[in-house]
């Protein structure tokens, strides 16, 4: 619990973070920055879980455990996405979205 900071402020912050992530995912044209946007989304829910646990339900540590698992899974996800991006880069020498669009409609 942080003195002088209520849960509303933190939840507003994480919601903004979430929607920045969604906006970035839609507008970015680089695969790596899309990946970063996804990380923003995941991390906003990590903060959400910890804060909700700490402020509202401090008796049981469910939210904290959940956030640890999210971090681990997000790392695996990033590693795999980076691996595929590197393979793609070897084939087409680019990580721009517009260069990857062979298949459409």
């Amino acid at each position: 619990m942080i003195l002088g900071v209520s849960i509303y402020e933190i939840l507003t912050l994480t919601s903004i973070l979430f929607f920045i992530g969604v906006y970035g995912f839609i507008t970015r044209t680089n695969l790596i920055s899309m990946l970063i946007s996804v990380e923003l989304i995941l991390n906003s829910s990590v903060v959400n879980f910890v804060v909700i646990n700490k402020y509202l339900f401090p008796e049981v540590l469910q939210g904290v455990f959940f956030s640890v698992f999210i971090i681990a899974v997000a790392a695996a996800e990033t590693a795999l996405a980076i691996a595929i991006i590197i393979n793609l880069y070897r084939l087409i020498s680019s990580v721009e979205v517009k260069d990857t669009e062979v298949m459409k409609y």
């Binding site: 979430f18 992530g21 989304i41 829910s45 996800e77 990857t100």
Partner: peptide, 26 residues
Amino acid sequence: RISSESGIKFILSAALASGAALFGVS
């Protein structure tokens, strides 16, 4: 090339979807 492209499309949209689902769960 087409296979890598489908892989990256799948993992990025899957990550976005599971991120949204996680926010909902929170």
